[in-house]
Amino acid sequence: MPEPQIQIHNLTKTYRVPVRPEGLRASLGSLFRPAYNDVEAVVDVSFDVAAGARVGLIGPNGAGKTTTLKVLSGLLHPTSGQVRVAGFLPWERQPEYLRRISMVMGNKSQMLWDIPPLDSFRVLGEVYGVPPARFRRTLDELVALLDMEELLTKPVRNLSLGERMKCELTASLLYRPQVLFLDEPTLGLDVSMQLRLRRFLKEYNQHSGVTVLLTSHYMADVLALCPRVVLIHRGRVLYDGELNELARQLAPFKQLRLSLQVEKCNGAMPIPDGVEVIEQDRASLTLRVPRAEAPALTARLLQTLPVADLTIEDPPIEAVIDQIYSGAGA
């Protein structure tokens, strides 16, 4: 069995943050006696990622996702713990390592603002030492995949947000990295552009074998792209595994959807104990039942109600995540 491409063991990162007080006098005071707080961004995080996998890092704002990505890419030195990516220690930032990874940040741009993307790409090709023939081939391939031929010669400042993100992706893949870190790549993009980028990332991952580690606020990104997720909350790993499994493990409920035969309804609808009604109208019912009791309760419902149709499903992933974000660890 090959060694995982990304190995993280007991990673902890603590920031020292200056406290800025309010008001004129207090700010004057802080000139002379600056105050600091220690903030634990990531605590004891461990997980591995195999080469070629697509993994989503999810969690609410400030959970520690970006910090984890920054440690992996070598931008931050961890406070403690072991990290290895492609056999390298990231924060040593050896050139051979940096040529193997790439980072895309939804809120920061690596493009030169006043000139067309093609010229920025040329500079980057030289920076990464890509031979001209290979540069040309890779660029053509990316341009075709992202359908951005006509963007290449317009100044970046005239491009839309989505067009700029296409450029960012091209810029970060020009030198064919083995690991791609994506930090909120769909930030601020409209829905169709989000779809487009997801499709691209999936295709590119499948044919190039690049390992993708992605953070996103949009569950749709993660649903579409990542068979596996790592859920981080308050700097700790709450869950690591398949996305479907996440719902089963963290949401101990099933959702029952019943369609009723309206003509047989006599008004009274006896609902057994332990069942929560989420939605109800004349012809249908949506219920939430404890996972373990789902079969028994379903049988009872079928007896007591004029059921025309019935489905049992997991609650939608967004609802589960929302429940975790607002409830867990509070």
Binding site: L75, R93, E96, L98, I101, M103, M105, S109, Q110
Partner: peptide, 9 residues
């Protein structure tokens, strides 16, 4: 954006 400068090989 200095992040990108640091990430160059």
């Amino acid at each position: 954006t200095f992040d990108f400068t640091i990430l160059r090989p």
